[in-house]
Structures are given as C-alpha cells and as structure tokens.
C-alpha cells in the first residue's frame, strides 16, 4: 500500500516539475500558462491521491481540496489568458503559421 502511495507521490511531483520546466522553457506567456496549468493540476491530484492512500481517514477533506483545484486552476488560467488578450498581449508564433483567430476579427 505504501509503495503505491509513494509511486503516486513521485509521479505527482514529477508532473509538477515538468510544469515548472515548461514555465521556464516556453517562449511566451500563453504557452507558459498551458504548461503550468495542465501539469500542475494533474500533479496536485496525484499528490492528493498519494496522501489519501497514506492517510485513508483524511479522504473527505482531500476530495474537497482536489475538486477545488480541479475547478479553480483551469478557470484562473483562462481568466489570466483572457485578460492578457484584452490587454493586447500578442501570442508568440512561428512566422509560417497563419492565425485564423485574427483574420476575421
């Protein structure tokens, strides 16, 4: 049991680290948001599952925290992204890529 819990913890921490690496390596804000949100959300959920396996008595509160992260994290990221777009921050793109979103606006 402890081994499974530890595996969840390591996988969760690894995904969180990948998210942080993405935060450093990605070329612009929007891509950084993407890397940060996705990886950290699943990473946190894996960590919570790991802790729940170590301390089964805490499951109810861990469930509430997990649902909270699952709802608020993507919502917060979308809110930031929308604010950036409205503030006029242009997404980075390779020169060859056309941007259908810009064309008919």
């Amino acid at each position: 049991m402890r081994l499974i819990a530890d595996l969840f913890l390591v996988v969760g921490a690894a995904f969180t680290l990948f998210g942080a690496i993405g935060l450093i390596r990605m070329p612009d804000v929007y891509n950084r948001i993407q890397a940060g949100t996705k990886a950290v959300t699943l990473g946190s959920l894996c960590l919570l599952i790991g802790i729940a396996l170590l301390y089964p008595a805490w499951w109810s509160k861990l469930l509430v925290i997990g649902v909270l992260i699952l709802i608020t994290n993507p919502l917060g990221s979308s809110t930031i992204a929308r604010a950036l777009l409205k503030a006029g921050v242009k997404p980075w793109s390779k020169a060859s890529v056309s941007q259908p979103g810009e064309a008919d606006r």
Binding site: T16, L23, I33, G36, V40, S44, L48, I69
Partner: peptide, 12 residues
C-alpha cells in the same frame, strides 16, 4: 502566471 503556479504547488 508563475505566482499562480506557485500558489497551486503551495496548496498541495
């Protein structure tokens, strides 16, 4: 964005 990510990491 970095602060947002840090906040979630801090929560877990």
């Amino acid at each position: 964005v970095a602060a947002d990510t840090l906040a979630v990491i801090t929560t877990s």
